[in-house]
Design a protein around this nucleic acid. Sequence first.
DNA 1: CAAGCCTGATATATCGTTATACCTCCGTCA
DNA 2: TGACGGAGGTATAACGATATATCAGGCTTG
Lengths: 335, 335
Amino acid sequence: MREKPKLETVAKAAGVSTATASQVMRGAGRISDATRQKVLAAAKKLHYVRDGRAAAMRSGENREIGFAIHKIANPFNAEVISGTSDLLETEGYLLSVLDSRDDLTRQRRNLEAFIQSSRGGLLWVPAQDTDETTYDLLAAHGMPTVTFLRRSGKGRFDHVGIENARATAAATNFLADLGHRNIAYLGGVTQFGVRTERIEGYRTAMAARQLGDAIVWDTPDDKMAGLRAMMALHRTHPEITAVVCNGDMVAIGACSAISQLGLVPGQDLSVIGFDDVQDAAIATPPLSTMAVSPYQLGRTLARVALQRIREPDRPTSTTLVPAELVVRGTTGKPR
Amino acid sequence: MREKPKLETVAKAAGVSTATASQVMRGAGRISDATRQKVLAAAKKLHYVRDGRAAAMRSGENREIGFAIHKIANPFNAEVISGTSDLLETEGYLLSVLDSRDDLTRQRRNLEAFIQSSRGGLLWVPAQDTDETTYDLLAAHGMPTVTFLRRSGKGRFDHVGIENARATAAATNFLADLGHRNIAYLGGVTQFGVRTERIEGYRTAMAARQLGDAIVWDTPDDKMAGLRAMMALHRTHPEITAVVCNGDMVAIGACSAISQLGLVPGQDLSVIGFDDVQDAAIATPPLSTMAVSPYQLGRTLARVALQRIREPDRPTSTTLVPAELVVRGTTGKPR
DNA sequence: CAAGCCTGATATATCGTTATACCTCCGTCA
DNA sequence: TGACGGAGGTATAACGATATATCAGGCTTG
């Protein structure tokens, strides 16, 4: 197999200069139709593809965008990624995903490699306990960055997130309206605004309605953890009749726990999730939840990123998307 | 904010040539300790990071590897990605994921951009109905490529997959040993070896044991589809007492259907999944399944890719990983 | 008919590194 | 003492594309 053809090869074959060939390849400049055809034909025959790296290096353009996320495996995240890449693709960008799995070492390595490769922009859900120096790193290199869901970095970056407090307040009020008084909050991890804001909404509602004591129970965001947490919560606080969860995975896990305890979700214990992942509607019983459209969220994220890339000097923005109560089978009047 | 420092800036600050600075930065060549320290100090003070693109362009090295996959959202895939990136990271590579969502246009776009960016290697689960020209594209550019799960490309690429036929045969035999005679096969999409091989194992076992007719029912690989398919299957073939599924997602969906029909999975209808995703153990009832360790599979994939990158001329290899029966709550004797 | 002006194409420098060859000391050894 | 060799550094040409300035002609235009 012969060597990879370069622009020079193509130019020679077409009998023109590399400058001309270059212009033809990217459809720029003033080139006659005849020459254009010649070059294109030669390129096709030689199976030429331009070296994006070299091009990007010279022109400074870069149409690759990275999405550094804390957990690819989370279905909500996967949906977001779909939305983001759909929009970016129509604008001619390529999205590649880096998974940190909430591990700081891994995140650091990913981001450093990312900066070295001089990509066009970064969408970023910071890992838990991300150090301020990591934010500095990105800021220092002028990387167009949008943080997502988890907010930090002293307002140096654009941010896209969810109206968390309002949503959990709505969820809590809904349960209160059904007659529940002992409502707990289940799930979430420390440090980030997501949990803080959601708990704040919950507490505010609990206080405003003069319900029982606010009870917050931490747990990571997956089904297994949710299951265990619900078990423990029920054991220590048997008076609780309803639970607002930090995410659908936790909520579904909690429902499994309730079933395993011989109780019925929605009758003996009400559960509200957050996100409305695809599984939520299919779960047995189907999960009541605060729905945000991850796909739309992903598109919003992409839109913000494009703005930043196109106008690097615009002031940083914050976009918060509302969540909406979807009532399914896991909520009901208390016994 | 001043311009991004380049090697030249660092070299000047340290009072050496760029050649020397370059050698220091990548720890190569013969440099005295004194000079080394000077350069490192200068680099640190200026917050220098080397431009990976330029370096890769000159040296030809490339430590970025892509994983083009048909569906990020599938938890099995997410686990595989974890395994792959863990191993690659320890070898100093960076893994970025491209999601084609089984869409040919999207896949083509991804792969073309990928080739342009001259990455170091590609791990690839081809999208459904992938055209032979797409395989040609990769082969023509000499991109080190390993296909995963779905096999094709006329043996031009290394391949890592699963011992599908043997596994489904084992599953079918297990159900037969329990006393089932009317066993159906549920799920899978056309074209690829995965489904063909699995069905072959099922058919072989059915024939060998002289059981009822082999019944194969197609459906995409997600819970919702599995639910609907099981509903339809039960309506048209009420005699069936056990189902071998093409994947855990389908199996879990099928169990939901069984529950919704007022029946009990494992008692009225037995179900065996494939993959053993994390959800399988948590599902209610917990799912019996053919377990492959996606994490280990991911590591194997990484290992094969590294071999290919290091010895580009070695003959192509095929690695098949066995699956193992895990009995949980969704299988039992027929009524 | 000279001056000006498009149109189509080209020569050349440049992006930020690294590979290669070469150079200068200085010590060693016959 | 002169040849040799290794250690430490440097000059320079790549890598493969694009930006920029420039050029050769043909066509207007006063």
